[in-house]
Nucleic acid binder design. Sequence first.
DNA 1: CGGATGGTTCAACTATATTCGAACCATGAG
DNA 2: CTCATGGTTCGAATATAGTTGAACCATCCG
Lengths: 117, 117
Amino acid sequence: MSQDIPFPIGDLPHPAREDLVLAQVLFALSDPARLAIVAQLVAGPVDMARCQLQDPSIAKSTKSHLMRVLREAGVIRNEPKGRGRRLSLRRDDLDHRFPGLLDAILASAPAVVAEPI
Amino acid sequence: MSQDIPFPIGDLPHPAREDLVLAQVLFALSDPARLAIVAQLVAGPVDMARCQLQDPSIAKSTKSHLMRVLREAGVIRNEPKGRGRRLSLRRDDLDHRFPGLLDAILASAPAVVAEPI
DNA sequence: CGGATGGTTCAACTATATTCGAACCATGAG
DNA sequence: CTCATGGTTCGAATATAGTTGAACCATCCG
């Protein structure tokens, strides 16, 4: 039961809240680049085009892959928006399944201040 | 500064508290087998010989490797004891560097009841 | 309808992790 | 000392993850 998220979140598959797996979430967050992405999303949703990686030389396919790992672990949402995509933290689902986990990680993660528009 | 732990903990190298890296800790805990080991250590130190893995068919070299990943991430201590080794959670160091992280993970991890002696 | 822009997917390659048996080392028991 | 026990390390094999350019797809803009 509950294969993917019940209501449409865009064309990409998102795991339902009850299908999140702790080890998978931890793995997704075990990479500094992915951790930095998550830190950027704490303040709120970010358009993918505006979400920068530390290393600007990274290929866009790689960036897309980073987002995929986070999405498939249930850490972020990735929904179409206009001609681009909008990324957001699935904080509610994470907090519900793993209370305190995200807070603890974010508190220890290097702060990433969102680039002003 | 502070390469390894300042006081002797056995012959194996252990990272000092201030050298623990969040991403590395998360990675160490992102494997179900390692997560289960940690869960076993919550109740207190365990002799390695008594610390069982779910899959009993796993080679001892593999078990040793699992312990190494956890040790190198600073999650567990591994000190000589008699002719064997004693494993323990570095809860104090983890709590100090990443407050709430271990609690959150353990609360969400599948409980592993220690085998009675 | 054409571009142009922004992302995903694919296939191939590289890099890193896992797993194992064998060899080795240390300790405690006899 | 000698042996058995319990673990680590090594090297090789396998598996999984990361990275990339090219191809593709969708949306907006003109």
